[in-house]
Amino acid sequence: MIYIRKIGSVNAQEGEELDVKAAWKAVSPKMIRRTDRFIQLSLLGAYEAIGDSALDKNTALYMASGQGNLAVFKRLRDQRYINKQPPKPVDFINSLSNTAGFYVAQFFDLYGKNLNVSRQGLVVENTLLLAQVDLELGKEEQILLGGVDELQEPVSFTKRTLGVSDETLLGEGSNWMLLSAQEQGSLASVDVIKKQMNITGVKEYLQGVNSASKLAFGQRCSKEVIDEILDGDAIERSLYHVPCGFYETAALYTLNRFIKEGEGELLFIDNFGDSFRLIKVNLL
C-alpha cells in the first residue's frame, strides 16, 4: 500500500474547447516556445497537482500515456510526405514521448528517475503498480505519476485506432498524483491488487469487499461485463461514476475526482479483454 499526497487534473471531452496554450502561458510564458500542445497539457496537469510547491529533487517522474504524443508525429508525417521536407528539429525532439517528461522535470527542478511508459489498455493500472512496487521496495521515496492523452482529430479515425465505437464520446486529459511510501500528510492510500484476474476472480474478490466500499468501473468495462460482475453479488453496491470522455488514462481522472469529492473507500475495476486489474483507494 502507498499514499497519495497531492492530486491535480485537467480534463475535457469532445466538443469542449480546452485552450491549453493560453492556460500554460499564464503559468510559464517562457516554456511555450519549444513545447507543443501535448507537452503543455502534461505541464498543466502536473501544475494542477503541485502548483508552486517545491518538490524534493530526487522525486521520480512516471508519465503514462495510451497513445503518446501522436499530434507531433502527424506533423512530422505531413512534413515528410506532403511538404517533402526534413523534419523540423523541434518536432523531431518532441516526437520522443519522453520530451514531455523532460519539461515537467525541468519546470519542477527534478533530477530523479524519469519514465515515459505506454500500454494498450490498463496503462494506468500497470504504471501505478510499478510505482507501488518501487515505493514499497524503497527504490523511490516519492513519485510524481501522471497520465496524459490528447484528443486527436479527426475523431472518427481516432475512435478506430482506440478500438471504440463511433458512438463513444472521446476526451483528453492530464491527471497527476504525488505518491509516497509515507502516510503522513497524505490524502488517501492506494493499493493496486498485484494479482491479475479474470472476471471470475473479480467476482470472488468482490465477496470479500465490504458494503461501504463504492465501486467504479473503467471505460473499457462494457455494460455486460459490469452486469456479470454484479450479478449474484449478495451486497447492493453503491456505484461511483464520473462522466468523462474516453481516453486511455482516464482512470486517473476517476481516482482523482473520488479523492477530491468522495468519501470512504473506492474499489476501481478495469479490464482490457479478459484481463482485469483492481485498485483500492481509501480516503484518509
Binding site: 508525429f73 514521448s97 500500454r119 494498450q120 472518427s156 485506432t161 482506440l162 478500438g163
Partner: peptide, 21 residues
C-alpha cells in the same frame, strides 16, 4: 500512416487497434 498517406486513404486504414503498446 505513412503508407496510408501515399495511398490517400486517411479515413480507411485503421481497421484494427494501433498505437504505443
Amino acid at each position: 500512416l505513412g503508407q496510408n498517406y501515399d495511398n490517400s486513404q486517411v479515413e480507411n486504414i485503421a481497421c484494427e487497434r494501433i498505437g504505443n503498446g
